[in-house]
């Protein structure tokens, strides 16, 4: 089995994550928060750009930069995860069906509403004929793509795989989701967000890259079995809770944050607990932003102050575990190591 290294990590989010060399985070507020748009023209030709919805733009730009940073022209696979897919164009086409009573429709928004549009546009732009797949499984969409990529690098002799997660806010459906969360006293408290985070996985070891040790997803886990599952996952990778320097958690303020409290009890006091959705918002592929943070922390050996929130900085940051879930289901563990 080959080892799997992350050669680049690029994120478009509600933070200045795309441009800045060193990450400074600020808390976001509001019902829904848009991602900060980079200068797309540097990555996408104006002709093509005009027709692209937000998610496609974010995905193509983040993917391009991730490939550039890893010095790769064409990856051996393009794997994308998206929870809500191309919701902007979906809403556009659906609303024109409703408004015009199934008449005078044009195909553009329908064509672009397909869930695999981002992966397809990346392939088209690169003229990349390699394996191309899109995962659409709620809060495990990105994780499924990452798992496929890891499988390819570790078990199937694949050299370079482009993996990403992308979701856009859209303009209507998101309001209904927000409304239902706000009606529920135990609902999600952080804003609903959007973003695209892309990574190049590779079998090649290089200087100052992060190793992706493993990932495990579970459709359902009881809170009582969570600690055992975490410990079993770590021991599968020959690690114990005290070897984890940083635990990155997906808290979003809803009542299911209990799972994160329970998870952190499996680790000693010295383990630094971080949560990130107050910076990027909650969305089905928000955990890809979490992975981006994990990579940045291991590479820079620094945790941004706003993320650390007065906890003591550690001198050496070697191993990070990410844990995410959504509404008590779709659990994922991701294990990273500095190398």
């Amino acid at each position: 089995m080959n080892s799997c290294y992350i050669h680049s990590a690029v994120s478009i989010s509600a933070q200045n994550s795309f441009e800045l060399e060193f990450l400074e985070l600020f808390e976001i507020s509001g019902k829904n928060v848009e991602a900060i748009a980079p200068n797309y023209k540097e990555y996408i030709s104006p002709m093509v750009l005009r027709r692209m919805a937000t998610g496609v733009k974010m995905g193509v730009a983040a993917a391009s930069k991730a490939l550039q940073n890893a010095n790769i022209d064409k990856p051996n696979a393009i794997l994308t995860g998206t929870g809500m897919g191309c919701i902007e164009d979906t809403e556009k086409f659906l609303n024109s069906i409703i408004a015009n009573d199934e008449e005078f429709l044009t195909p553009t928004s329908f064509i672009q509403s397909t869930h695999n549009t981002v992966g397809a546009q990346i392939a088209l732009g690169l003229q990349c004929k390699a394996y191309n797949n899109t995962y659409v499984h709620g809060a495990l969409s990105f994780e499924s793509a990452l798992l496929d990529g890891l499988l390819m690098v570790q078990n199937e002799e694949t050299k370079n795989v482009l993996v990403g997660g992308v979701d856009e806010l859209g303009t209507e459906f998101v309001d209904y989701v927000r409304m239902l969360e706000d009606q529920n006293p135990n609902g999600i408290k952080v804003p609903i967000g959007e973003g695209a985070s892309f990574f190049v996985l590779s079998s090649e070891k290089k200087h100052n890259v992060v190793e992706l040790l493993g990932i495990k997803t579970s459709s359902k886990l009881s809170i009582h079995s969570l600690q055992n599952e975490l410990i079993a996952f770590l021991s599968h990778h020959h690690l114990k809770p005290d070897s984890i320097d940083v635990l990155i958690l997906g808290n979003n303020g809803d009542s299911f944050d209990d799972y994160y409290d329970e998870a952190s009890k499996a680790f000693p006091q010295e383990t630094i607990n971080l949560s990130y959705k107050q910076f990027c918002g909650e969305f089905y592929t928000a955990s890809a932003f979490g992975l981006f943070l994990g990579c940045e922390i291991l590479k820079s050996q620094q945790i941004p102050e706003t993320l650390l929130q007065h906890k003591a900085q550690k001198t050496s940051l070697k191993t990070i575990l990410l844990y995410n879930q959504f509404k008590g289901r779709d659990h994922s563990f991701i294990l990273l190591r500095q190398c």
Partner: peptide, 8 residues
Amino acid sequence: FVTTISTA
């Protein structure tokens, strides 16, 4: 392990 694929 449960997941969904959508490539049209």
